[in-house]
Amino acid sequence: MILLQLFIEFFKVGLFSIGGGLATLPFLYHLSDTMQWFTHADIVNMIAIAESTPGAIGINMSTYAGFTTAGFFGAVIASIGLAAPSVIIILVIANLLKKFKENKHVQSAFLGLRPASLAMIAAAGISVVKVSLVNIPAFEQTGQVLDLFVLPAILLGVVLYILSKKTKWNPIVLIALSAAAGIIFQFAGA
């Protein structure tokens, strides 16, 4: 039963997350809240893993979520569920899109979808910041403004941003440095 639920839920995510892998994040947060298959902190881990592994972020995240929920078969079913709508839609409308791509209503619809995708990605980004860089429970306990922020993570983010702009290092190097810093400075408690 859980595998069918995974397929249905990730099929819906794949059907409505227009804008790429990061656009799946609001749907994943919704699944976290409604199905309790994984936590918001798990989603941040999904992002870290999905961004640092080869492949499409949406598929990587669905694989991780499915595995977390129901093991190997959950990973496979969630990934198939996420990809299925795109495959079906492309197969059905490939010829129609070619015929209608110059249609002003079709162009207007695609232009209208851009702000929706941006808003979903921005909302997901804000949620990631809340989990990764802000510690509201610590702030509520102490009332100290500095306790509100996860300073090691913020500092690491600033350093990695500067390195990405000042060097021509491969992003893999930056990801490896970030993982090493997390281990060395024990970010688990952040």
Rank of each mutant, 00 (worst) to 15 (best):
L3R: 00
L6K: 00
I8F: 02
F11Q: 13
L15G: 01
F16K: 11
F16W: 09
F16R: 13
S17C: 08
L22G: 12
A23E: 13
T24L: 09
L25K: 02
L25Q: 03
L25M: 06
L25V: 11
L28S: 07
Y29H: 05
S32T: 05
S32C: 06
D33S: 12
W37I: 14
F38H: 02
F38N: 04
T39A: 04
D42W: 02
N45G: 13
N45S: 15
I47V: 08
A48N: 10
A48F: 04
A50V: 14
E51D: 13
T53Y: 04
T53H: 08
I57M: 03
I59M: 07
N60E: 11
M61H: 02
S62K: 12
T63Y: 10
T63Q: 08
A65F: 00
G66A: 05
T68K: 07
G71K: 11
G71V: 08
V76E: 05
V76F: 14
I77F: 09
I77G: 00
A78V: 07
L82F: 10
A84P: 11
P85G: 06
S86L: 10
V87S: 10
I88K: 07
I88C: 06
I88E: 05
I90S: 10
L91V: 07
I93T: 09
N95Q: 12
N95K: 13
L96T: 08
K99N: 05
K99T: 04
F100Y: 15
F100S: 15
N103T: 09
H105V: 11
H105F: 12
V106H: 07
V106G: 06
V106R: 14
Q107G: 11
Q107D: 15
S108Y: 11
A109N: 11
F110T: 15
F110C: 08
L111I: 15
A116H: 08
A116R: 10
A116V: 13
L118D: 07
A123P: 02
A124C: 10
V129T: 10
V129W: 00
K130Y: 01
S132Q: 08
L133D: 00
V134M: 01
V134W: 00
N135G: 01
I136N: 02
P137V: 03
P137W: 04
P137K: 14
A138E: 12
A138C: 06
A138I: 13
F139K: 03
F139W: 13
Q144I: 13
D147T: 04
L148C: 08
L148R: 01
F149Q: 06
L151Q: 02
L151K: 06
P152W: 00
A153N: 15
A153P: 06
I154P: 01
G157A: 04
V158M: 14
V158N: 07
V159F: 05
Y161C: 15
L163R: 06
K165M: 07
K166C: 09
T167P: 03
W169G: 02
N170I: 10
N170Q: 07
P171E: 08
V173H: 03
I175F: 09
L177F: 01
S178I: 02
S178Y: 00
A179Q: 13
A179I: 04
A179Y: 04
A179R: 10
A181Y: 01
I184N: 13
A188Q: 15
A188P: 10
A188N: 14
G189A: 12
G189Y: 12
A190M: 12
